[in-house]
Design a protein around this nucleic acid. Sequence first.
DNA 1: TCTGGGGTCCTAGGACCC
DNA 2: TCTGGGGTCCTAGGACCC
Length: 420
Amino acid sequence: MFALADCNNFFASCERVFRPDLQGKPVIVLSNNDGCAVARSNEAKALGIKMGDPYFKIKALVEKNGVAVFSGNFPLYGDMSRRVQEVLRRFSPSVEQYSIDEAFLDFRGIQADFDVLAKRISAECYRCTGIPVSVGVAPTKTLAKVASKLCKQYPKLRGGCYMWRPQDVEKVLRRFPVADVWGIGRRSVPKLEAMGVHTAWDFTQLHENVVRKQFALPGFRTWQELRGIPCIEFEDYVDAKQSICVSRSFAHEITSVNELCSQVANFALSAVQKLRAQRSLCLEMAVFAFTNRFKDDAPQTRGSSLVTFQDGTSDHKAFVSAAVAATRELYRPGYGYKKAGVVVLKLAQEEDVTGSLFADSAAAERSSRLSAAMDSVNSAFGPGTLRFGIQGDGKVFAARDHQSPHYTTLWSDIPKVTVK
DNA sequence: TCTGGGGTCCTAGGACCC
DNA sequence: TCTGGGGTCCTAGGACCC
């Protein structure tokens, strides 16, 4: 058996842990730049606020109904996620963190009353972190996902659901929309509807050859999993990332090349930090920038530029220089840039890269010491404490009008308790 | 006025090899 | 008129996930 533990309305729940007054009230969390709603409490969902709704479009509705609004506080959510994972690890030696708010637990070879266990895991997560968690247990990961969705639908299940008998699975799948199945995306839904497939059960009744032909290997795996045959690997290890992307929209359009360089330099520095954390080197960096795609009446442009690093690098100075050079190359005057980013590609682990025979090893050594020094200063005193001049104040220009305190990630923001 | 950010895997087709 | 057979590697684009 596999379990899926899924945090309910995760970002909204994180904010609520520190604002108990918002219990039972509508809460939403906005994406970067206060752009879209990316998390909604049940009460906010009930008001008709959809995932990804632009904030400016729902603002009137939000104000009329007294919805609590938060700008995304991602360090907080990351820390709360870590705490939930810690609790989950008490229940299985093998935990796969699937996303910031979901984890699979491997129960293969374990005998237990899984219905009781699922409810206990949910209760323990809530007791230790304040986050409500839905725990589904089933013979495959895809069915465990279905089971955890049932928990959200039926509060009577008290956060835990065990589903395994074929007749029970059939009953559930017959009422489960195929569009809600893990692995069935929006592009496949119209195709399925045209074939008369509306529920997850309908999908399982298609002929194997039809599934393989129409939905290829990923679709076939989903089909198998729904039929109770596990074929998606359990991965309780973290692979080094194959690519790293840091990109942001800006609060206002950028027209000056220097300002654009400064923003992109900040993206590059944050990318190099992630790269170094996983002990990788990168052989290619791409920089891109584009205008506001929603503005139909304004001239549009999108540019990108590629830099290659012959011997691979994870050097701060090399990153800034490359990012600035690439930005200057793609920049075209007369346009208002709304979004830009840095992507590092062709990553390799440090120990797998053979250095060049003719490299200036003394210069490389100095540079690598400088990078190490920046790492240690910035990890002790916060990102951007030690930075390059081109980075300006080290901040990306973004709107965040509803920011909550960094309750658990900044000493100065720790909640105070007064005992009377 | 105002529209997020960050990933992975699979497949088809082209270029190349003998 | 008739034009082999068997591979590998790379890339772009599509689909999916949160």
